[in-house]
Design a protein around this nucleic acid. Structure first.
Length: 1055
RNA sequence: GGGCCAAUAGCUCAGUCAGGUUGAGCGCUCGGCUGAUAACCGGGAGGUCCGCGGUUCAAAUCCGUGUUGGCCCA
């Protein structure tokens, strides 16, 4: 017996198998050995996209990591030293808000009172906690990454990557301190990136407000859903080319003289309930430009009176953002609207934004100071106060409510406020041509993700506001002069540089560069003292530097030269606008280069109904649920069998169960080989297919394996990994288990040593050990088990190389022959079934008719076919079977082009003909018209003769002759008896090679006589040392009627 | 409101690029086979190829449009 290093159960028990394999990996340091094995190979920089560490992982994250693990393992096996540091995104507002919730905080003030240092410590603890949970989930899915060396955003290493990148971007002249309108969360008191704003339908005021013109008796009518922005109004916008109308009308408030877009008159009349409407004149928007108006709330807003004095304020401007919607005139508040702001800047407005960080009006808002700016209607809020005054002052033409989409903070759901604030920007729009060019340098799988989705996004890109007014993040390394201006800022590229230039002593070994520590550091140069700005980085900027941080840049410039940019990244399609983008932005802004070469963009894992998995719905499947129920390999097989390129996956437990079933077959195949080699005391490592006499079926399975290997390699190279996985699983189940193993059973069941057995063992060993390697990237546990069971020379299968294609073993002709054989077998089985002839009962002959090729193939393989169909003889003929009649089968693909609309009717007529009739007169009459049909437009199908059962296949037909004689009957009865004895052996739980004594009583003289000659055969097949008339006290027995003949069988173990 | 992706058997998916009577696996059902197998083999039932319109002799496939779901954006 061979001593195996690792012992496995006979059954496919994933729990025990996986823990056995894990123990083995640990005991031999399999992961470390694997990396060592590739230490001198060419490098391959795989970059892990860092998942965000808050809350539990769901199986979609598991899918992502399984895909990564699969590619890492594959590239290693292909001879690469693969970078495999996992990453974690640990900073940011989500964690801050969770910690705030834990501490019952309401606002930022609470944090300051609590102490920033302590708060940051809590955030770190929170992040570490979830990091550990996630890591354990990932590891439990068999993912091999460098867990002890993960890159994490709060480390000094990572912070330096961000600092260094910003410094580079600044050198490129793209850093821009600027006040701009941004999304602001009043609760979190910070700017939000566009990506951090979520939209929902809410109800808001919908109001029509009159702006009385100064040099005209009419009023402009504007429409808005944000009454609170009216106190900040500075101008009104129209479209120069749009037609506007002056109308007179009567409302509840009396006579009105109004100006709105001509197309909007009807709408306004209806909304305001106007009567006696008369359009006095129409004119282009151009004519309105320059008109001065009076702010409708001027009496409540001393600041507006002041602004009114400025010539440019409270005038009408022609802009390109006005459409003929609602009134066709837009009230513009540059402090609170992005387009309003951009245009206002061009004209030269000084921005007026009377809203503070908490979302309350400032003193500049006059009597409204302190009121809360929200989208609601509550008493005392800005909207309510403004509405009341507009109405009281007669400026409110109409007021209602409207449901529309409005943004809220992704973390705390607070309605966002658009507001102009001092922020820091990267002017990425300056680089748009480089962005597009570099985007095209990367290869995306699927390609449409790049050419449609991503391009669309990049073309619409806006400048990047990277500053955030929060705590838990990388501090922005910008120091500004104490008394301004902030445009004269300096940037710091590393901790070392900071230590050199700082006024304070900094212990580089020990310093934590987070707030508040870094806030205290000042720099004094040339007589000026600089203080750090309070802001931290947008977390997307952090993720954008991952390609640097994960290889230790800027500290490790050597790796930067050698590895960067990354060879491959793999994330889901939500990252088009996320990490794929933030990386491109940083890469281009800092280095004019895209930081990744290949991108696999996979889909989302949705629930069984196709709906998003979400915590609130409660339909989340966690990795450990799947692992506990079906095991890691089945879960991975299920996930990895799906297209990894852009397509969503609807989760199903049945799918995992199906995967488990397929692996069960793989396991059984291993057990089969293992069992017989053990009985024969054969050491699989001593066998080689080069040293045995291979039979044709052995050659075939080896050829098929090489074909599958080639298919896999080719599919993997274009990242169609699911096709690769399908190929090996298909090979193992369809070809190896269902065909090869079935075919060789009689060869290995023989008790004596034989060359044919050696050939089968050598073949099975070769197939299984190679498949262990082919399975390794996908189902690492069962792959290891197979390898250790049959070889085990290396510590782990995962350190071995991907199988190279062995052309010597390929035989395309033989594969085609067997393909034909299987087709013939299938239709033969079909014919047999029609004849109700069970497979234990042999038939006299099977005739195969078909093309010369089919006949040649079948002749070459006749013994195998005879065995599988249980037929005495296989006959072949290229001619036709006597008595077979033929009818005409029209070919629509030919008739269609030839006869157009008549094709259908012609086909109907043709199908009524026999072949003879057709050949005699190849014409049909349809609607009195006669059509001549060429024979190439039809084919002929067999009419089966009644006494022979037949079935057709592509290139021929199979006829099963069910005539029987005594010899055939004898074989049938013998097979039935053998089968029952085997069943009894099994019931007795005998060793597979144990001897027995068997008693057979047949209560039918004729059949009994027939069986006389078969007793030796029965004895051999059942390992019976003796077949006797009766046993006094059989250990097991069965009494049954076989084809109407009562039979009693008894079995006992041989002495 | 916009961009992208998807919709085919009860379920999960091929087939769509390149038009020619839709396939597989699972499930169901009937039968067969079995000393590797909780496995396997064969037959059968099961389809408005999401709807509508167009192009064409011919559309699951191409075009237009709508619906539903997903991702992203506004």
């Amino acid at each position: 017996m061979v001593e195996y290093m690792v012992e496995f159960d006979d059954d496919y028990d994933t729990d025990s198998l996986e823990s056995t394999v894990e123990d083995h990996w640990e005991s031999v340091d399999a992961y470390e050995r694997t990396k060592e094995a590739h230490a001198d190979d060419p490098t391959f920089y795989f970059l892990d996209g860092p998942p965000y560490v808050s809350g539990a992982t769901h199986l979609g994250t598991g899918w992502n990591k399984a895909l990564k693990d699969q590619m890492i393992r594959y590239h290693r096996m292909q001879g690469h030293q693969v970078t495999d540091r996992p990453g974690y995104d640990m900073h940011g507002l989500p964690i801050e808000t969770k910690v705030e919730e834990d501490l019952d905080f309401e606002t930022k003030t609470d944090i300051i009172e609590f102490g920033v240092e302590e708060f940051i410590e809590r955030c770190k603890e929170f992040a570490d906690h979830y990091l550990n949970e996630m890591e354990s989930d990932f590891r439990s899915l068999g993912v091999w990454m460098d867990w002890d060396n993960a890159y994490r955003t709060p480390t000094t290493e990572y912070i330096e990557a961000a600092w260094w990148s910003l410094d580079r971007i600044d050198e490129n002249g793209l850093v821009d301190p600027s006040d701009r309108v941004i999304n602001w969360c009043p609760r979190c008191q910070t700017a939000l990136a566009d990506a951090e704003v979520e939209y929902d339908d809410i109800e808001s005021p919908s109001i029509y407000v009159k702006f009385p013109l100064v040099d005209d008796s009419a009023s402009l009518v504007i429409w808005t859903t944000t009454p609170w922005t009216i106190p900040a109004n500075q101008y009104a916008a129209v479209d120069a080319d749009l037609q506007y109308a002056r109308l007179t009308a009567t409302s509840d408030d009396g006579a009105q003289e109004l100006i709105v877009a001509e197309e909007c008159v009807e709408h306004v009349v209806e909304a305001a309930g106007l009567s006696d409407v008369e359009v006095v004149e129409t004119f282009s928007g151009e004519r309105l430009t320059g008109e001065k108006y009076t702010h409708p709330l001027e009496s409540h807003l001393p600041k507006q009176t002041e602004l009114h004095e400025e010539d440019i304020v409270h005038r009408v401007y022609a802009t390109d953002f006005v459409t003929a919607d609602k009134t066709g005139i837009v009230h513009s508040a540059p402090g609170h609207g992005e387009e309003d702001y951009e245009f206002g800047k061009e004209v030269g407005f000084s921005v007026f934004s009377p809203v503070d960080d908490t979302g309350a009006y400032t003193d500049e808002a006059g009597e409204y100071a302190g009121a809360e700016v929200t989208q609601g209607f509550d008493d005392g809020t800005a909207n309510a106060l403004v509405l009341d005054d507009l109405e009281a002052d007669g400026a409110l033409l109409a007021s209602g409510r409207t449901a529309h989409r409005y943004g809220h903070c992704w973390r705390c759901d607070t309605d966002i406020v658009l507001r102009a604030t001092d922020q820091w920007f990267i002017r990425i729009t300056d680089k748009q041509d480089v962005l597009l060019e570099q985007m095209d340098e990367s290869q995306w799988y699927p390609q449409w993700a790049r050419d449609n989705r991503f391009r669309n996004w990049v073309e619409d890109a806006r400048d990047w506001c990277f500053s955030r007014q929060r705590y838990w993040g990388i501090p922005i390394p910008i120091w500004v002069p104490e008394n301004g201006p902030r445009e004269e800022y300096i940037t710091i590229a590393s901790a070392g540089e900071l230590a050199e230039r700082a006024d304070q002593d900094i212990d580089l070994e020990d310093v934590d560069l987070h707030r508040p520590v870094v806030d205290e550091i000042t720099i004094t140069e040339d007589g000026r003292t600089y203080h750090r700005i309070d802001d931290i980085f947008d977390v997307w900027f952090e993720s954008g530097v991952a390609s640097l941080a994960s290889i230790g840049v800027p500290g490790d410039q050597e790796d930067f030269e050698e590895l960067w940019p990354a060879d491959l990244i793999i994330e889901a399609h939500d990252q088009t606008r996320g990490w794929f983008w933030s990386q491109l932005e940083v890469g281009v802004a800092a280095f004019d280069e895209v930081p990744y070469e290949d991108v696999i963009m996979h889909g989302f894992l949705n629930d069984a109904e196709g709906d998003k998995m979400s915590k609130s719905v409660g339909n989340i499947v966690e990795p450990k649920n799947a692992r506990d129920r079906y095991g890691v390999d089945p879960t991975r097989l299920y996930l990895l069998s799906h297209n990894p390129q852009g397509v969503d996956l609807d989760f199903s437990w049945d799918g995992i169960e199906g995967a488990q079933r397929r692996l069960n077959i793989v396991w059984n195949v291993l057990q089969f080989a293992d069992q017989y080699m053990s009985i024969d005391d054969v050491d699989p490592t001593s066998l080689s297919v080069d040293d045995v006499e291979l039979e044709v079926i052995d050659q075939w399975i080896l050829s098929r394996m090489e074909s599958a290997t080639a298919t896999m390699t080719e599919a993997m190279e274009r990242y169609d990994s699911h096709e690769a996985l399908d190929a090996v699983i298909d090979f193992l189940t369809e070809d190896f288990s269902r065909f090869y193993i079935q075919t060789i059973r009689s060869r290995v069941w023989e008790e004596t040593e034989s060359p044919t057995k050696q050939a089968a063992y050598a073949t099975m060993t070769r197939v299984l050990t190679q498949c262990a390697r082919l399975l390794a990237p996908f189902t690492p546990f069962i792959a290891e088990a197979i390898y250790q069971e049959l070889d085990g020379a290396a510590e782990t299968v995962h350190m071995l190389s991907w199988p190279e294609h062995d052309a010597r073993l390929r035989d395309a002709e033989l594969e085609a022959q067997i393909e034909t054989l299987r087709e013939v077998e299938e239709v033969g089985a079909n014919a047999r079934q029609q004849g109700e002839r069970g497979r234990r009962w042999p038939v006299g002959r099977v005739v195969v008719s078909g093309s010369a090729e089919v006949v040649e193939d079948i002749d070459a393989l006749a013994p195998i076919l005879a065995d599988r169909l249980n037929a005495r003889r296989i006959e072949t003929t290229t001619g036709e079977w006597e008595g077979v009649s033929w009818r005409v089968d029209p070919d629509m693909s030919e008739l269609g082009p030839a006869f157009g609309q008549q094709a259908g009717a012609i086909a109907d007529a043709l199908s009524k003909l026999t072949r003879e009739e057709f050949r005699e007169t190849p014409t049909v009459d349809v609607d009195g018209e006669s059509y001549e049909v060429d024979e190439s437009m039809v084919s002929f199908v067999r009419e089966t003769p009644e006494h022979v059962l037949s079935s057709e296949f592509t290139d021929g037909a199979v006829y099963v002759d069910t005539d029987r004689d005594d010899a055939l009957e004898a074989d049938g009865y013998a097979n039935e008896i053998v089968r029952r004895v085997q069943q009894l052996r099994k019931e007795l739980d005998l060793e597979i090679d144990a001897g027995i004594r068997t008693a057979i009583t047949v209560d039918d003289e004729g059949v009994d006589a027939l069986l006389n000659d078969k007793m030796d055969h029965i004895a051999t097949e059942t390992r019976s040392e003796a077949v006797v008339d009766s046993l006094a006290d059989p250990a097991a027995s069965v009494s049954e009627t076989i084809h109407g003949v009562p039979v009693v069988i008894g079995v006992e173990p041989a002495a």
